[in-house]
């Protein structure tokens, strides 16, 4: 059964409030998971478990964490993602807004890229495909 944007947002919000101990009003669509909501690496695993349960989906690790791309010398030079690497990231994460990252695509900044809205788009791509 297809879920509306609002239904997805509400469930994603519940998962984030539960996993990160943040308030509802902090989890706006623009909020970044790391910078604004304080997610640490272990929290991402928790968020994945909660989203899998809430939406009855499977989330393979590489879909949310493209570490294989970001550590591949074919796609990264001097700590910066190359044009080929950006193309690969866009292919892997079509649901993410990479426009800001693309302006200065330093690998070290990738961790603070994902927003609540990106997560909603990702879930939408899984449940409404």
């Amino acid at each position: 059964m297809a879920l509306s944007e609002d239904e997805i947002f509400t469930k994603v919000q519940e998962a984030l409030v539960d996993a990160l101990g943040v308030d509802d009003d902090e989890t706006t669509r623009d909020a970044t998971l790391v910078g604004d909501l304080g997610a640490e690496s272990i929290d991402f695993l928790d968020i994945v478990f909660k989203l899998e349960k809430a939406f009855d989906i499977q989330i393979p690790r590489e879909e949310l964490s493209p570490e294989d791309i970001l550590t591949n010398s074919q796609y990264v030079q001097d700590g910066v993602v190359t044009a080929d690497g950006m193309a690969e990231l866009k292919k892997r994460m079509p649901w993410a807004d990479l426009s800001k990252f693309q302006e200065n695509p330093r690998v070290q900044d990738f961790g603070n890229l994902l927003t609540v809205g990106d997560l909603c788009n990702y879930v939408d791509s899984k449940v409404n495909q």
Binding site: L45, V48, F49, E52, K53, I59, R61
Partner: peptide, 10 residues
């Protein structure tokens, strides 16, 4: 055991 992933379990 509730859920498993390749990097953890609940």
């Amino acid at each position: 055991l509730e859920r498993t992933q390749d990097s953890g379990a609940t």
